[in-house]
């Protein structure tokens, strides 16, 4: 009997893990519109006000589905054209510790939506708000800021060596097959 209860609890716990890729593909109006003004700087007179946080941020940040959708959109919308898979090129690197305009998902969302000086275009009205949140969540995951249980894998073609199962056999290494 006690075993039964333990099994039941264990199953419940396992099921809880299914939340990591809950797939909301329709915008959730209850989570807010994503239109909250995001201050460009944290400096202001009269003491700092509580940091603004969007309800949407939490629901996108640790969700494997949204992160992988963000990864797909990152290549679809040619972010790599300037940011080169996050390594940086014409645009700044996205996988380092440096954040010119803040590291929170709300900051990144504001950057994509409104653009930034010296080249970052504004994607307001060109990308639906939820898709901007997905991109922002993915950009944060590039520098390891997403739970590893949810973050998408790096593409095979970006690995320094072929994946394990495509490596040459140790016995024939250096010899032609």
């Amino acid at each position: 009997m006690r075993h039964g209860a333990a099994m039941f609890l264990f199953t419940l716990l396992t099921l809880a893990a299914c939340q990591r890729e809950e797939r909301d593909t329709r915008p959730q109006s209850s989570l807010g519109s994503g239109e909250q003004p995001m201050p460009v700087t944290t400096l202001e007179p009269g003491g700092q006000r509580p940091s603004a946080s969007d309800n949407k941020a939490a629901s996108f940040e640790a969700n494997a589905f949204h992160l992988s959708e963000g990864k797909r959109l990152f290549s679809w919308f040619n972010c790599s054209g300037c940011h080169a898979n996050g390594g940086g090129g014409m645009g700044p690197a996205l996988m380092d510790q440096k954040w010119l305009y803040g590291s929170s998902i709300e900051n990144i969302h504001a950057t994509i939506r409104d653009g930034r000086p010296k080249g970052m275009p504004s994607f307001r009205d060109k990308i639906p708000d939820d898709q901007i949140w997905e991109l922002a969540a993915f950009v944060r995951s590039l520098s390891g800021n997403a739970p590893s249980s949810a973050a998408p894998q790096r593409n095979d073609d970006m690995m320094p060596h072929p994946s394990e199962n495509r490596m040459p056999d140790a016995a024939t290494l250096g010899k032609s097959p």
Partner: peptide, 16 residues
């Protein structure tokens, strides 16, 4: 108006 209702999961997003 509602691609996610017609073909749930498709890559066409809901555009307001």
């Amino acid at each position: 108006a509602d691609p996610q209702g017609v073909k749930p999961g498709s890559h066409m997003p809901v555009v307001e």
